[in-house]
């Protein structure tokens, strides 16, 4: 029996029980009235007759209980008694109970954790029109066989390879202070810096506003534009379409909202959903190390 049909039959046991009980009460009351009718015919007043009928009937409650049992409507009560009993038994041996619960919790947690990982990694395709056409390029360097690319390397790949329809780049941003306007307190969000062709190559068109333009990631620090994720848009702006062209602040720097990503595109990350996308060219604004030159240094793979 599946979980839901169990619930259904429990519910109907409850409902029918009410009906069966009502019917039984009706029947017992009918009996008392018939008896009272007879007594009344023998010359007793109606009230006295009813009182006597009730007395003669015997233990009303006791018989009602017995009758209910005979009807088989005790299933639910018995079930609750069993549950109460098991809870009491569990309370008597708290150590064992805790041990068992923790074991079960860990077991279930591990299995469901593993499952959601496998599910995300293997079963869920990328949320883009042609998920099978996407490959991830990984850099191998002398100290890592699974490294990122520097920006210079990305540019070379983008411009010199002919095997791909397009090469996109992205870089995670953790803990960016976001405020909807200059006066409000910044909130910690996570976003992503992407190449200007990012959404375009993935085949993702904003549901609102426009996509990045290619020239918007050409000049470092020039184009402060941001595309919001659909969830973030709803959470922070209540899904207001007037958000386009609004100025928001990321780490205190003013950005213009140019678009909202479509609902079906929660991002390319498996376990993380970026709140917004900004051009890679805006990286210097968020850099904490002024000595570094992300755009020139071929070895800067962070």
């Amino acid at each position: 029996m599946s979980f839901f049909s169990t619930i259904r039959s429990l519910a109907s046991a409850f409902l029918q029980r009410g009906q069966v009980n009502r019917e039984m009460e009706d029947e017992l009351r009918s009996h008392l009235q018939h008896r009272a009718d007879d007594l009344q015919r023998a010359g007793i007043s109606r009230t006295e007759a009813e009182r006597r009928a009730r007395l003669e009937f015997g233990g009303f409650e006791k018989f009602r209980e017995e009758a209910r049992e005979a009807l088989g409507g005790r299933f639910v009560e018995t079930l609750f008694q069993d549950i109460r009993f098991s809870v009491r038994s569990l309370r008597r041996t708290p150590g064992l109970t805790v041990f068992v619960i923790v074991t079960l919790a860990l077991g279930i947690g591990m299995v469901s954790g593993t499952f959601s990982m496998v599910d995300a990694l293997i079963f869920r395709p990328y949320p883009v029109p042609h998920p099978s056409g996407i490959v991830t390029l990984v850099s191998t360097t002398h100290d890592s066989s699974f490294d990122d690319f520097s920006y210079r390397e990305y540019l070379d790949l983008r411009d010199k390879t002919q095997s791909y329809a397009g090469v996109i780049a992205n870089s995670d941003m953790k803990a960016v202070g976001f405020s909807a306007d200059a006066s409000s307190t910044p909130r910690v969000t996570g976003g992503m810096m992407v190449s200007g062709n990012y959404l375009h190559v993935l085949g993702v068109e904003p549901q609102l506003g426009r996509n990045f333009r290619l020239e918007e990631d050409q000049v470092p620090g020039r184009d402060a534009v941001v595309v919001l994720s659909p969830e973030f848009w709803r959470r922070e702006f209540g899904g207001d379409p007037a958000v386009i062209n609004r100025h928001v602040r990321l780490n205190g720097v003013e950005f213009t909202v140019i678009g909202v990503a479509p609902e079906k595109f929660p991002g390319m990350q498996i376990f993380d959903r970026p709140d917004f996308y900004i051009p890679l060219a805006m990286a210097p604004v968020f850099s904490t190390d002024l000595q570094k030159n992300f755009f020139e240094d071929r070895d800067d793979r962070n």
């Binding site: 039984m24 017992l28 008896r35 003669e56 009303f60 006791k62 017995e66 009758a67 009807l71």
Partner: peptide
């Protein structure tokens, strides 16, 4: 026969 005792019997027979 106790009057009330009749009903559990009746319900049992119906069942």
């Amino acid at each position: 026969i106790e009057q009330g005792a009749l009903y559990p019997g009746l319900f049992r027979l119906v069942r």
